[in-house]
Design a protein around this nucleic acid. Sequence first.
DNA 1: GTGCCTACTTCCTATGAGAGAGTAGCGGGT
DNA 2: ACCCGCTACTCTCTCATAGGAAGTAGGCAC
Lengths: 157, 157
Amino acid sequence: MRKFPYGKARSMPSESAKQRRAQAKLDYDAFLTNCPSRQLLARISDKWVTLILAALGGDGPSAGAGGTGEARPLRYSELSRRLAGVSQKMLTQTLRSLERDGLVTRTVTPTVPVTVHYELTELGSSLQELMWGVKDWAEAHMDEVLANRDEYDARPA
Amino acid sequence: MRKFPYGKARSMPSESAKQRRAQAKLDYDAFLTNCPSRQLLARISDKWVTLILAALGGDGPSAGAGGTGEARPLRYSELSRRLAGVSQKMLTQTLRSLERDGLVTRTVTPTVPVTVHYELTELGSSLQELMWGVKDWAEAHMDEVLANRDEYDARPA
DNA sequence: GTGCCTACTTCCTATGAGAGAGTAGCGGGT
DNA sequence: ACCCGCTACTCTCTCATAGGAAGTAGGCAC
């Protein structure tokens, strides 16, 4: 396993993207505290990130029979309405960090009042597929979890 | 879409597990604040949950060429060592909630000192596959994200 | 007795999530 | 002229919680 001091200039120019990602999997280990991938994992393991990506992904590959699974850009206010209960602060904060990490693009249109669109990048799309699966799992297995909780709480201490 | 007041006794006895899950996906919507699936999503969208499941899943389906992808039970102390940087409090807390939700089982062996094993349930395994994908994504795309961050930070405000 | 082991539990403090109000800049109503 | 309202934030305050550190039970070795 190659070991880097987590600096820059890590990839060889002749490697393919796939090769580089395979190499990255060996270089990075999210089980380690100081590995950057631990921080990245912490960032994406977040309910708002999951919901934002799911929303920008157009409700995912299923969405019943009519779902196209196509990504579609959303305005700030649309996201705010879709993600019920999110504070403006958290929404802005989360979107900024997703933008910084290259998962979404932020497009300002100078109408009046100004409108801002957020859209998944290709990188964001690749994660969105996973995140949609997570959201879907939560919805699909809710009953099972609820039943387990009842059983657990009912059993003698 | 059937609407429930999020009470108990939700499933019809004659439905198959698959049918029930499909129905659950319609009943529950993690985009809504008060939906229990929102809480469940928040619970599983957590770095420690991801790492615990990944660890109990035996490093996932890849793990290079030798990985079996087989789940294997781990002791508390083994988990504590594997998840570098986790506090005992968080580990215990997270394991308890996973146990309550029926994702892991807790087995106490009355040796001296006592040993406790944690193992994935079938339900936990189904989520572990997703979570492993998330951890894997973080490690595989770390370089891309790092590059995006550099670019973002370098560009004029 | 003293120390050590595992698997916790308790206490304290710093971080950060969320609620609520404030801001810029312009258009539209009266 | 004046006030309102709209979008997309930004600021401030408060309360919850994550994490660090230290304490606990109970038994075996020395």
